Simulated assay, not measured.
Amino acid sequence: MSVEAQANVPAGARPAKVTEVKQPQWVPFALAVIGTGAGFAVKHLAQWLVTLPRAPFKGPAETLTAVPEPWLTVGLLVAGAVVGLLAGFIILHEELAVRVAADRVVLSRADSPREFARGQVAMAARDGKDLVLIGTGGEQLAREECDFTARRLAAAFTTHGYAWAAADPHAGDFRRWVPDTPGLPAGADALFKAREKALERSDGTSDARELHEELARLGVYVRDSKSRQYWRVTVSTGA
């Protein structure tokens, strides 16, 4: 939920309010409860499977139910809680957190904050599941996937006087990238090829993000859709 917090300001200065949009801190504990319930369900499922003459996973179920009580129940409940708790902390670490103030916007993911001064941001918009920040020259300052509703994000930005759009005004300017696409700056095609390989790897998220930023330095802005890469260059907003 969006909450109001006080930013650090010099002594005697008027404190600036900050609106935060982020995953609630109780997520790990909620998932721990769900995990505990899942562990309890696994116990009863295993006990049911061993009563059947033939069933998938009957072998593992027999191994599991061979553990004496109360260790079977305790072990499954603890394991479910731990898995749920870890999953929740991973979500808090990996999900986007948005902090909006009258003088700046901060986007944080995996403890890596990116700060944008008020004068840089012409508009914020929602594009599919992405939050997009657009600069005063039409450049794409940031594009971050997030699960927050457009209404929550819009409220955070408009509360502090930022322009908000329900859709990326430059969505129609994106073109699909294919190898050796004409019109790209020198070096951009090689970065796209490297990024395509990174997107195909399960551990390539950080590499894809880094290459995204490299392309932005060349004035090329990227939009992903169903493992496909789309690109545009700066188009003035007229702001």
Rank of each mutant, 00 (worst) to 15 (best):
W231G: 05
A166E: 14
A117R: 11
L141E: 06
A79N: 00
Q47W: 02
L86I: 15
F148H: 15
D147G: 13
A156R: 09
L211W: 09
P179G: 04
A16G: 03
A125N: 08
L49Q: 07
G135P: 03
R104M: 11
P56Q: 03
A81D: 01
R104I: 08
L153E: 11
L133V: 12
F157Q: 13
S225T: 10
D207F: 01
A32K: 06
P56V: 05
A154E: 15
V233I: 15
P28H: 07
A46T: 08
A66C: 04
R54I: 04
S227D: 14
M1I: 07
Q6I: 08
G135I: 06
V83F: 01
F157N: 10
V235S: 12
I34V: 13
D130S: 13
E144V: 11
G138H: 02
A13K: 04
L107K: 11
V78S: 03
S112R: 15
W164T: 14
R54P: 00
T149I: 01
A7S: 13
E144A: 15
E4V: 15
H93Q: 09
A122P: 03
V27N: 02
A208V: 06
E210V: 11
A142P: 07
F29A: 13
A216W: 02
L85M: 10
R104S: 15
V178K: 08
Y230Q: 04
D189Y: 09
G238T: 08
W231C: 04
G35C: 04
A5W: 01
T63V: 11
D173F: 03
A142Y: 04
G161S: 05
K17Y: 03
V82T: 06
D111I: 07
V42I: 14
F29H: 11
R223K: 15
H44E: 14
E144Y: 03
K43C: 04
V222P: 04
W26H: 09
W231I: 02
D173Y: 02
A16I: 09
R118F: 08
A190N: 07
V220F: 09
T65C: 14
S236H: 07
A208L: 06
I134M: 14
A167D: 13
G12E: 02
V100W: 12
A55S: 15
S2Q: 12
S2D: 10
A165E: 15
R118E: 10
T234Q: 07
L86P: 01
G119F: 00
I90P: 01
L86W: 07
L184Y: 02
I91C: 05
L184T: 05
G128Q: 06
F57A: 13
L86C: 09
F57N: 06
Q120L: 12
G119I: 00
G35Q: 01
G183T: 02
T136I: 06
T36R: 02
Q6G: 06
G119H: 05
S2T: 13
D103V: 10
V83D: 01
V21T: 13
A55L: 04
F57W: 10
P24I: 11
A165M: 12
D207R: 13
A165F: 12
V42S: 07
S108N: 14
H170A: 14
D130N: 15
V106H: 02
A154L: 11
R109P: 01
A7K: 05
Q229Y: 05
W177K: 09
T181P: 00
G238K: 05
A198K: 07
Q140Y: 00
L77Y: 07
K17D: 10
H212Q: 12
D173H: 12
R228A: 12
R201Q: 14
W71M: 14
A102E: 14
A55P: 03
V100M: 12
R126E: 11
